Computed example of a mutant assay.
Amino acid sequence: MLKIGYLVSGGIITNYKCSSKCKHCCYSSSPQWPDDYMTPSMADEIFSTLRRLSCRSVHIGGGEPLLKPDKILPVLEAASRNGVGIEYIETNASWYRDETSADAVLKDLKKYGVHTLLISIDPYHNEYIPFWKVKALMAACSRVGMGVFPWLMDFWSDIDAMDDSRPHSLDEYARLFGQNYLARLSKRYGLNLKGRALKTYKSMMKKQSFEQVLEKSRPCRLLSGVYHFHVDLYGNFVPQSCPGLSIPLSELAKGADPARYRVFYTLETAGVKGLAELAMKEYGFNPQAEYAGECDLCYDIRNYLVLERGLNLPDLKPEGHYRYV
């Protein structure tokens, strides 16, 4: 069985819809996603399961979880009811409009046990969100006594060198700081090169032959990792290393059938080599000559299964991860 007996630390994805379509987003969030948000009943089920698995606190992210502040309050209430603490809420500050409305949202969050916002501070987000909103939200947090977890202050001076009244493209940053800025940005940020981040940086990565990738293939043991996992609004357990792969948390807690989740199980036990063999033998997958490593090959296979073959595979959810990259 595919089973998890306990979980240590992770996050809740309340929605995939986002105000931005950042080039570094490993979850492929964007405005294109359906306007779905975690329901109170799903939140109750998730937090009660997490508590049974000994997970006592989580962070909340998206998408942009504060696009609909009224929708997040029942989620926070469910967490409190089940004895799961909220470490912080991630936000890109796009929802900020004025002092009065921002203060009201922050005060509501505090009433429900939230004491820290992780506020995104990086050039990727600045392509969509003017820096004045970030500054204004930080000031609002200071006014109401909400803690700020700035992610990452290392980029403050870069962004502050620009006009803070409007967004700025990464091309503008490259013109100001050098043509290799995008490549350096990835290392400074410490990106997880999955989802849209892989699409952004794949052309800069060293290529290997298909055969070389298979030779280096190892079982993907991180798929059932107990650190930095996520659970999304549909109740899916999303592994710490691989968005776009999922198994319902409720099934993993009891023991999921490997025969039902063949992609997940094959990757965990036989790595991308096993997945490639499965895809070629049963689904007619035709590999490219070269790939930028194992993850690139894995995504090529999964994109083929979801987008080209149109297969409704239970462990390649949500499909938006592939459609809206």
Rank of each mutant, 00 (worst) to 15 (best):
E99F: 09
Q240D: 10
L109V: 10
R56A: 12
R188E: 13
V148F: 00
A79V: 03
M146V: 01
G320F: 02
K107G: 01
T266R: 10
A276F: 05
N126T: 09
D160L: 05
M138N: 01
G225Q: 01
C22G: 12
P318N: 08
A276D: 04
N286E: 15
G85M: 08
P31S: 11
L50V: 09
L182E: 12
S28L: 02
L117E: 11
P239W: 10
K254R: 15
G225L: 08
H24R: 04
D315S: 12
V231R: 01
G271V: 13
V114F: 11
W156Y: 15
K206W: 00
T14F: 00
D163W: 06
R188G: 12
P150L: 02
E211P: 01
Q208L: 11
P130S: 08
I121T: 06
T14C: 14
G85S: 11
R97D: 01
G195T: 08
C22P: 12
Y173R: 08
A289V: 12
A78I: 03
E290C: 05
N82M: 03
K110E: 12
P65H: 11
V148T: 07
P40A: 11
D163A: 09
T49F: 03
L198M: 00
N82W: 07
S157N: 13
R221P: 05
D122H: 14
V144A: 05
T39C: 10
A43Q: 10
R56N: 12
G145M: 07
W33S: 13
E64Q: 10
V272C: 13
I301W: 09
V325W: 09
E64A: 10
A79R: 03
Y88V: 06
E290T: 14
Y128V: 01
G61R: 11
R260S: 12
D70K: 13
H125W: 02
E294V: 04
A136T: 00
L249I: 14
D232E: 05
E215H: 10
Y299T: 05
S30P: 10
D160E: 15
A93V: 05
D36C: 06
G83P: 09
S20E: 15
D164L: 03
I72C: 00
C26N: 06
F264A: 00
S217E: 02
K202F: 01
R196F: 07
G145T: 10
V75M: 03
A276Y: 02
E64R: 11
K111N: 13
G145N: 03
V325S: 14
T200H: 06
I46Y: 09
R175G: 06
G274I: 09
A161T: 00
Y189T: 14
P130F: 02
R184W: 05
E211S: 14
Y227L: 14
G10D: 08
G190D: 08
K206Y: 04
P248R: 01
E127A: 15
G293S: 04
C242Q: 14
A79F: 00
F210D: 01
R175W: 05
P40F: 06
S246T: 02
D163M: 07
S186R: 15
L214G: 04
P258K: 08
L316K: 04
L53Y: 08
L313Q: 03
W151A: 14
T100C: 06
P40N: 07
A292M: 02
L267A: 10
G271R: 13
Y6P: 03
R175P: 01
L245I: 07
V84G: 00
I159Y: 01
S41E: 15
G178C: 06
G147Y: 04
E251W: 06
K133V: 09
R196V: 06
R218A: 13
C18L: 07
A139F: 08
G5I: 03
